[in-house]
Nucleic acid binder design. Structure first.
Lengths: 351, 351
DNA sequence: CATATTTATGCACACGTTAACAACGGAATT
DNA sequence: AATTCCGTTGTTAACGTGTGCATAAATATG
């Protein structure tokens, strides 16, 4: 079954294939009647342009890449889903959205101007720098999301994780917590570092002791949250933190389980805070207090900027920070100690 | 910056571009020395083939499509993520994986043999039939996942949801439950119907009363689970079911929250079962008893079959059912009534 | 030694599209 | 009446690759 080309249409319309091409692309130099006749015929024959041919001559692939650091470990389902959805909502129809993990590649030979009109890199780790450098060398229009890269004149869109983490830890402190632990994200991930910085910022600002044994390394997945929390619980009743800041919601779920198994109730015995605001976080019991990260917004904006970049060929270096949002729910309360103290000291000193 | 083509290589190697083409594609009719010399030059120049040109002459797009019914509502993040991952792990390098929602399209003109070498349709609803028909008309190699379609000679890979639902409801019954409610999935989705059938199968097999007010319609998202559970709770203490089968895990989370808010403890006052086995399900408190659906396996297998289909041009009609697996965890226990009865009747009749 | 066969390479065209340029008829300008 | 101009259409080449056929050289066969 041969597919119909502009030449077929040309024959039927008694014109040259050039005229057909122009008519179908809305060129202004074509007579209105001819144009309509041609469009009519094209419609009737169910003509669809051959994009490979277009690509070849126009030097565009019609592919947009959305690259994650990895699709294997450290990328949560919610994050992935929201990212794809955000991009997808912007590029409807015009482009193909190609989704990939950077760590799927051993070499980047296949990534060229010819194969991608533009790239969105949802970057989670400094390991991506090789890839990003390659993209720059290939002069592929590119927007880096989620992680700051300097030494690269690209648009950079990310959420202010440090500020967000600071905000939620500050909230814990204001609620009266002084012994606050952190379960960190995957080692090497930029977000891990930023969230930890936010935690430290808050602790320092309020002159709280920063204990090494209150800092444990997770890997952003549920399981690690569970195990790291168990580790913290080994500190024993006297040394236990009154609040734990988990570097993402997935780990908070794991941590919650560990705490519950240990016999603690949340938030009465232990306050728990997360980061990300996954879809399910509001539906946990207790509902998780966390920081909402604008993932979908980030990828939407990224896609919009990228498309603009491709179509206007303008190269801008620009860094955009998107605001995070504190989501106060039920997994954090005033610590028992604070309450006790308030009781003994009388209501007057209870803030 | 001009990119290097086989003609550039040809000049340097003092051969025709034809020879280069053949050498780079491993044609057997080329002298070994020449071949090596050419490959060496290609490597040195960082040559990458222009896929648009290849596509044009070979009539292949190198694109594989993974189409979901929708990316907006009714597709859970975990399901989406696992699907993409499964496909991605199979097609490394060779193809571009293009992810799309069917409901993004108003017409399917753009979906042609030219633009996709093959298609995976992760079908969730009968609404997809128009699309699938189109794909068939266009003679695009296609594998339909997750939903049974007849009247279409395609490979069909799905999990046996009916059997899985039967299995878990039967488990509830064996644990002593007689008043079992169901929160159904999104109306119109095939999986919704299949899971409900499994529920009814089990109820009928054990001759349990099937009550209309024990069947409520959800939409697969957390929120609907929450609200439908609240509805069930309105039935009042005497009429309450002792177990609720939620048609997916997301809704089970919502339902759990509603039950907890109502003052019930799970599983002592109410048993809860889910479906899917999301990543987080084992980490809920209590850990969710559910049915594991082999999503990643499904998409892996689908991708493998599709690639095979494309490369051998063989058209097979075949339906593969993948087994689900019962995941017994902590959200289901024997109902209080059953226990009471056991107690009054003495240990002998317990079991 | 003449002929057949194999091996290695090149020539020319094809794929479907766009675009620079030429060409043509008619209208407007000189 | 000759020239310029405009609006519309056609001619031709180009994009980078693969392939059928011709060809040349080398080797085997009789």
């Amino acid at each position: 079954m041969m597919s119909v080309t502009i030449k077929d249409i040309a024959k039927l319309a008694n014109v040259s294939h050039t005229t057909v091409s122009r008519a179908l692309n809305g060129s202004p130099l074509i007579n209105r009647e001819t144009k309509e006749k041609i469009q009519e015929i094209a419609r009737k024959l169910h003509y669809t342009p051959n994009f490979s041919a277009k690509s070849l001559v126009l030097d565009r692939s019609y592919n947009l890449g959305l690259f994650f650091s990895t699709l294997n470990e450290g990328t949560s389902a919610g994050f992935f889903f929201e990212s794809v959805r955000g991009v997808n909502s912007v590029i409807k129809g015009t482009y193909n959205l190609v989704v990939r993990g950077i760590d799927d590649y051993t070499d980047f030979k296949g990534i060229s101007r010819k194969s991608f009109d533009g790239l969105l890199v949802m970057s989670q780790s400094a390991k991506d720098d090789d890839f990003i450098r390659h993209v720059r060398d290939m002069q592929i229009p590119c927007v880096v999301l989620n992680r700051h890269v300097d030494s690269f004149d690209a648009v950079n869109i990310l959420s202010d994780d440090r500020q967000g983490a600071f905000q939620i830890v500050e909230y814990l402190i204001r609620e009266g917590h002084r012994r606050i632990a952190i379960i960190e994200g995957k080692a090497g991930f930029k977000s891990t570092q930023e969230r930890k910085k936010g935690y430290l910022d808050a602790m320092t600002k309020y002159k709280l002791p920063v204990r090494k044994d209150y800092q444990v390394q997770g890997s952003y997945d549920l399981e690690s949250g569970y195990h790291r929390m168990k580790e913290l619980l080994k500190l024993g009743a006297d040394e236990l933190p009154t609040a734990v800041f988990c570097s993402n919601d997935d780990m908070a779920v794991g941590a919650m389980k560990a705490a519950l198994e240990y016999g603690l109730t949340i938030p009465d015995d232990l306050s728990l805070a997360g980061f990300d605001d996954n879809l399910f976080s509001g539906y946990l019991s207790p509902a998780l207090t966390t920081v909402k990260r604008p993932v979908e917004q980030m990828s939407r904006k990224g896609a919009a900027v990228l498309v603009d970049l491709i179509e206007t060929k303008e190269q801008v270096k620009d860094t955009v920070y998107l605001r995070t949002e504190l989501m106060i729910r039920d997994s954090v309360s005033r610590p028992r100690e604070a309450l006790d103290k308030a009781k003994t000291a009388g209501p007057s000193s209870a803030d």
